[in-house]
């Protein structure tokens, strides 16, 4: 049998990468898919918030003293004009939640992105070089992970003052260690594989080995962790803002919206519950998606919401 006989059309022989296989599994996971849709809708709404505000004429800071405040000076419940009701100053809560989503999602994604880069690099360095580098870096990781973090955040913000940038940095500084720990562990085992030795025998540089040979093989757990760290960052941001350490009014964020609402839960149920539910929906969707991605990447893990439920 000669090689020419084996030839088949090129379209059929393009390999399916492990990513494509994982994607195939993820596509059949209804819970993960629904979560992804929720996230896409939220992101779209957040991105389009100014358009929506322009369309219904309710700017995020516009106070509607005639229609948005009852004669007693209280917020107005949800209705045709104000879908989520109004807040204590007669502003459209729906619009404010959308604008809050912009800040909260942005902080979550940017902080997690920064943390991922730092975490991957530090984890790779610690795992790849081992020795003293590893001892120092892993101790650092341990210490950061066990920090009384909120207290340190309070201390740091009290020095630099609350701002968007400070919030992002505080969250990124908190999140990188979890990624670094996982990357380090994976690197330790992957660097012993023969293909790394093969690359070394070819004369590949350390950087090439770390980023071309090792990194793609540990991306899977990192991606899972990142999808789980984004909701954690959103939770952290809202907590900081709730305490007055993060995003400060008048810029709306989910945390400071809830902080304002706390004094009004006896008279305006929507003021507290609707932003809270939006926040929960978002973090829950990210967490469910993260679980789904983990299942798709590592099919051995047990599925919680199995499609093969009938199997006893």
């Amino acid at each position: 049998m000669t090689i020419t006989e084996l030839r088949v059309p090129a379209a059929q022989v393009t390999g399916r990468s492990p990513w494509q296989l994982a994607w195939g599994r993820l596509r059949t996971d209804r819970v993960a898919l629904a979560s992804a849709i929720v996230i896409v809708v939220l992101v779209t709404l957040a991105v389009c918030a100014p358009l929506i505000a322009a369309w219904n004429g309710h700017g995020p800071d516009d106070q509607f003293r005639d229609t948005g405040i009852t004669p007693e000076g209280l917020p107005v419940p949800p209705g045709g004009e104000f879908w989520f009701g109004t807040d204590r100053l007669g502003r459209d809560l729906f619009i404010r939640v959308l604008f809050g989503a912009r800040v909260s999602l942005l902080v979550g994604v940017v902080a997690t992105g920064m943390a991922s880069i730092v975490g991957v690099v530090i984890g790779l360095l610690a795992g790849f070089y081992g020795g003293v580098v590893d001892v120092i870096l892993s101790r650092l990781i341990d210490v950061v992970l066990s920090f009384p973090y909120l207290i340190f955040a309070i201390a740091a913000v009290s020095i630099v003052g609350p701002s968007l940038a400070a919030t992002v940095f505080v969250i990124a500084f908190y999140s990188w260690a979890a990624i670094a720990r996982i990357v380090r562990g994976q690197t330790l085992s992957i660097k012993e594989r023969e293909y790394v030795e093969a690359a070394r025998s070819l004369g590949a540089s350390d950087g090439r080995i770390m980023f071309i040979d090792i990194l793609p093989n540990l991306l899977a757990p990192v991606i899972v962790l990142v999808t789980l760290l984004i909701p954690a960052a959103i939770v952290f941001e809202s907590t900081l803002s709730y305490l007055g350490l993060g995003i400060t009014p008048p810029t709306p964020s989910w945390g400071n919206l809830l902080s304002e609402a706390q004094g009004f839960y006896r008279v305006a149920w929507w003021y507290l519950t609707l932003p809270a539910l939006t926040l929960l929906l978002t973090t829950l969707a990210f967490n469910l998606l993260g679980d789904g991605i983990r299942d798709a990447i590592d099919p051995r893990t047990e599925r919680i919401f199995s499609r093969r439920r009938k199997k006893k």
Binding site: P231, V235, S238, T239, Y242, G255, L258, A261, Q262, Y265, W269, L272, T273, A276, L279, L280, T283, L284, F286, N287, L288, D291, E302, I304, F305, S306
Partner: peptide, 29 residues
């Protein structure tokens, strides 16, 4: 894989998705 397991898992997922202060505010409310 029992019903209890799935319920608990779902509840737990809801739990980890919540900021502590939101839990507190909702409990208060």
């Amino acid at each position: 894989r029992s019903l209890l397991d799935r319920t608990l898992t779902l509840v737990a997922l809801g739990g980890v998705s919540m900021p502590t202060f939101v839990v507190g505010l909702l409990l208060l409310y």
